[in-house]
Design a protein around this nucleic acid. Structure first.
Lengths: 238, 238
DNA sequence: TCGGAAATGATTGTATACGAAAATAAGGCC
DNA sequence: GGCCTTATTTTCGTATACAATCATTTCCGA
């Protein structure tokens, strides 16, 4: 089947799109890098000052983030980085266990040379970040690995769903992880890439399932005290 | 012109939340009732005039709808009701086939007396609408049936995902159905309710799968000419 | 000293104004 | 007559101003 309508956004180089989308991406990135923790207040003026835009733009970005469930907007109170409850955390991971095996299966089927190259390149980036001791990049890349898989799977809806789930996972891990160990081990990803590029679908799916199990096993899903995070000069700094 | 007063007090018994959310819901409702078809232009001023609010509110609603994939915003062009491609249609239904069996399973497990009452009440509404020949209500209720199931399942993420998928399904059915027959037969829903309230999980899941298969079988997923729809005095009128 | 009520400050909700981009219509040139 | 160019109009993108709401502080009385 050929893609008749390319209604989706281009995956070109870096595309600012609208400014609101740029801010959206930057905040998601900050969450993926765990610079922004749950409960952090995102004041409209404050964020607007950081990015040099008006509140109008910031509002659009925050509403978009709220729709993805990684920001909570309280009426007349403001926007805050979401603070997933234990129940929500469980929901996020059950959703991932449902969707990601399917994505893995699709990715294995659709993995042409281009896809294989993408995967190997991403894996190399992960390894490089880990070797360089760049924890922020490492944790973000390990989350984005799953999105690369979704991209290769060629299923836009699953990709969007997973984008949400991965971002929320980042918050959940920050809140509930019991160890300080790396959450997504590069070894697992490497094994996944092996199986996928080798076309071994069943093996790849099994790898993914056990990978997700391992991530969730490192969580302690009980209510914890709320860690309040300081202000944000964490944004915009690149 | 549309009377502004009507929308002002016509908030209904359900909570309006913010006004943007109310507009969001009303447009989704219009799509579920197939009063709004794919490609319909949703001008900001036009919609704002209908609901008696400023463009600011309308923008928020449209952006939210765009995020759910049922509205497409083209830069400097405006917002339009989405026109799902064949590929997107296939994606929507593959996603439903993945999620809804899981929802059915959960709903069966969590279906207490309250849930059973909800289901039976909804089923009665469907039957009543069908008997009354109210096609609009019938088609909307048949879509919302699946959302009731998700609500009973008690899984917020699945519920949100499915809300998106159901709305998009409505557009897809409008575009690609090959017959004029009712898309969701009440009989199927009745059988589902039977199995679910009876606690027969496997049977319920099987019913759901065959139900989805039937819906999709009634679609002809090939590109068709674009049916352009007239303006919207379809909104706000209840 | 403690508690409550009013004033104050900060922040968001909403509307409107202005500039920019694109679609549309009009006009001249070939 | 057809087509390219240009003027106009509509519509959106963004910023800003004002109003409403909530949180906090202050002040007074018991």
């Amino acid at each position: 089947m050929a893609d008749i309508f390319a209604t989706h956004e281009d995956a070109g180089p870096d595309r600012p799109g609208t400014r609101a989308e740029a801010i959206h991406r930057d905040i998601v990135r900050a969450i993926l890098e765990q610079r922004l923790g749950p409960g952090t207040k995102l004041g409209e003026d404050e964020v607007g000052a950081i990015y040099g835009v008006s509140r109008t733009i910031v509002r659009a970005a925050l509403q978009s983030l709220a729709h993805e469930g990684i920001v909570v907007i309280e009426k007349n109170r403001g926007a805050f980085v979401a603070h997933p409850s234990v129940k929500e955390a469980a929901e996020v991971f059950s959703a991932r266990r449902l969707i990601e095996p399917k994505i893995t299966e699709l990715a294995t089927a659709h993995c042409e040379v281009a896809g294989a190259a993408l995967l190997r390149d991403h894996l190399a980036q992960e390894k490089a970040a880990e070797r360089a001791g760049d924890d922020r990049a490492a944790i973000r890349l390990s989350g984005e690995f799953h999105l690369v898989l979704a991209r290769i799977a060629g299923h836009g809806i699953y990709e969007n769903f997973l984008r949400e789930l991965v971002a929320r996972s980042s918050l959940i891990i920050l809140l509930y992880r019991r160890s300080r160990s790396q959450c997504c081990k590069v070894d697992h990803h490497a094994a996944l890439v092996e199986a996928i590029t080798g076309g071994r679908s069943a093996e790849a799916v099994a790898q993914m399932v056990s990978h997700l199990d391992e991530i969730e096993r490192d969580l302690e899903l009980v209510d914890t005290a709320i860690p309040i995070k300081p202000l944000s000069e964490l944004l915009g700094a690149r």
